[in-house]
Simulated assay, not measured.
Amino acid sequence: MNSNEDINGLLARHFAHEGLTPRQQSVLDSWIKANEGEYEKLKKLMGAPVATPDPATFDAGAAWRKVEPRLSGSRLWHGLHRRAMLIVSVAAALLLMVVLALPYLSGSRGSDVMQYANNGTVEQHIILPDSSEVLLYPEATLAYSDKGVDRVRTARLSGKAFFKVKKLHGASFKVETGVMNVTVMGTSFLVDATHGGHAGVYVKTGKVKVATDRASVVIEANEKAELIDGELRTGVIGSPATRFGSDDADVSMVFSNEPLPKVVSEIESNTGIRIDLGAGLDDNFITTRIDGADGDEIVKELAFVCGCKYKTVVAGKHYMLYK
């Protein structure tokens, strides 16, 4: 049992985990000792972890029929037919795994980008992988990635969208359009880049930085930055409820015998509208319902309920109640 044919047969049975007689095992052990390098190569090849090939994608039988006529020593190969089919199938599965892995091995990041498009006629609500929320307006598209350097979450917007950004420690959020970029840490704001020559950013709560190729500004709640004829202009949002649409129309606050300081604090938290209190108003208790986030309407309602006066510090953004 020293011929190559016999050794090949023993190796085939050995790697197929079939039992050998003591004499056969002795012969195989002797061959392994004399051919350690070759045996280790065979062992690595046969022991490599592989996925079970899909029979629908590879016909091992057909492959064998093409190869078989070219082989010499037909008696040997007939003895190894079943093992050879297994080896060919395994090789095909390995090749398939390599092909599937090519996009990752080549460094492609296409799978890291989430694509969204609103082809309908109403706003589309989206929750991003970082739990930030986006209200995507009709005919708008958004590409989101959080795999960039410095943990920057990037949203590339075409069209109009309202963002409610989830604050993540050390991870900023950037909205890019064709004409301006917006950088935030955690806030809510509207970006309208529907028309390339006239784009705008409108902040509902928090603070954002808006930048173009020529200038940059920082704006806060109920402020806006608009790009008009290439110039970045800032201002106050005249009617937040109108600007933010249905999102602000849904703001509803009900107060039942609540102290006025607590009322104005909750209003600022929900709308970004600041209301200062003059001397002697802290003891007022308020019972009312406030719908929407129009600063003028809110301060008028509070002045009526507490029987006091009001003045506008910054329209739509900052007011004061006094006796």
Rank of each mutant, 00 (worst) to 15 (best):
Lys166Met: 11
Lys166Asn: 14
Lys166Glu: 13
Lys166Ile: 01
Lys167Met: 09
Lys167Arg: 14
Leu168Val: 15
Gly170Met: 06
Phe173Asn: 06
Phe173Gln: 02
Lys174Ile: 05
Gly178His: 08
Gly178Val: 08
Val179Pro: 00
Val179Glu: 15
Val179Ser: 15
Met180Arg: 01
Thr183Ile: 15
Val184Ser: 15
Val184Glu: 12
Gly186Met: 03
Gly186Phe: 00
Ser188Gln: 11
Asp192Cys: 00
Ala193Phe: 04
Thr194Met: 07
Thr194Lys: 12
His195Glu: 14
His195Cys: 03
Gly197Thr: 10
Gly197His: 10
His198Gly: 00
His198Glu: 14
Ala199Cys: 13
Ala199Trp: 01
Ala199His: 04
Ala199Gly: 15
Gly200Glu: 15
Gly200Gln: 13
Val201Gly: 05
Val201Tyr: 06
Tyr202Phe: 14
Tyr202Ala: 11
Val203Lys: 08
Lys204Glu: 12
Lys204Arg: 10
Lys204Cys: 01
Thr205Leu: 12
Val208Thr: 06
Val208Glu: 07
Lys209Tyr: 00
Ala211Phe: 03
Asp213Gly: 15
Asp213Lys: 15
Ser216Met: 06
Val217Ala: 07
Val218His: 11
Val218Asp: 11
Glu220Val: 13
Lys224Phe: 03
Ala225Trp: 04
Ala225Tyr: 00
Glu226Pro: 04
Ile228Phe: 09
Asp229Ser: 13
Glu231Leu: 12
Leu232Gln: 08
Leu232Phe: 05
Arg233Ile: 11
Thr234Arg: 10
Thr234Ser: 08
Gly235Ala: 04
Gly235His: 06
Val236Glu: 05
Val236Gly: 00
Gly238Met: 01
Gly238His: 12
Gly238Asn: 14
Ala241Asn: 12
Thr242Arg: 11
Phe244Leu: 02
Ser246Ile: 05
Asp247Thr: 08
Asp250Arg: 15
Ser252Asp: 07
Met253Phe: 05
Val254His: 10
Val254Gln: 11
Phe255Gln: 04
Asn257Gln: 12
Asn257Gly: 10
Pro259Thr: 10
